[in-house]
Design a protein around this nucleic acid. Structure first.
Lengths: 151, 151
DNA sequence: GTACCTGCAAAACCTTTGCAGCATC
DNA sequence: GATGCTGCAAAGGTTTTGCAGGTAC
């Protein structure tokens, strides 16, 4: 029944993520640390380009391919996830084991609001798994609409 | 408050869609008709390439750009919508005014199941709009998991 | 010193647009 | 006959990979 957990972390912190990397024989470079800090400090999903721009370390901007590879790695480790937000490129955010976020996206200005309220869907995941015979059910929920400023 | 309706159709049928096109001064070609039939006959979202492959008309495969332009048109008319399904390309499906579909996607084989049960989220849209000050709230909900065959 | 990481560069994809000829109305 | 539609071709973006040199352990 159970397979890979959605997040292998018990908490979302730089230390916890670094420990996970270490346990897999992976290394912590200055660039990686800076990128992890960017992700931890983000208040919503970020595109690769945004991550790159916010992760300038000692005056040096990390290569786009480097950012891509780190995010692919974190995604594979289930530490981060990719969301689309109905845009032309992917956005990434860390998977907080304590908290699940749904998104509220303005169709006019594109601003993304994190919805930290109780998720209206979590409760039905189990029922859906049973009904359709699926295991390891999780979900992606995005609300769209016009934000107060754009109305 | 109200703006463009999510679907301008009163029912989902070839005739209704054609009538809408006509009312906008748009034309119905053999290729378009075939593509509309493909969409109406689909049992889930299709990629542009899938639409193209399934819309061979009198031995002629429509051009990819043509498929793209028709889907862009239908999307603009709110007759079809684009979904991502966490894949690298977009998928399209018609917007049925009578019915709202959420998706259940196998993370192993990628098969998409349409969930025609009552949507667990529709009811809360209004409350979310009020709470965050958003108007015209709609949503995209995708469940992921391992399907019975892949478990 | 070994293995892993990074930057650079190019390839691979998917999406989008321009244009001339063709088909619909 | 006018206008919209199509196919072909090319451009634009984003994502992904190869490789040689550099860095963490």
């Amino acid at each position: 029944m159970a397979s890979e957990p959605r997040s292998p972390l018990s908490e979302l912190s730089l230390g916890a993520i670094v420990a996970l990397l270490r346990s897999r024989g992976l290394r912590l470079t200055k660039g990686r640390q800076k990128i992890l800090e960017t992700l931890l400090g983000a208040d919503g999903p970020l595109s690769l380009e945004q991550i790159q721009r916010k992760s300038i370390c000692q005056g040096v901007t990390p290569d786009y391919a480097t950012v891509f590879r780190i995010m692919a790695l974190l995604e594979e480790l289930h530490v981060a996830q990719r969301v689309h937000l109905n845009r032309s490129c992917s956005y990434f955010e860390l998977l907080d084991p304590q908290q699940h976020y749904d998104h509220l996206i303005c169709t006019e200005c594109g601003r993304v609001t994190l919805m930290i309220d109780s998720c209206p869907v979590e409760k039905v995941e189990q029922a859906i798994g049973r009904r359709y015979g699926f295991s390891d059910v999780h979900h992606s929920l995005e609300f769209f609409g016009k934000c107060p400023e754009c109305r």
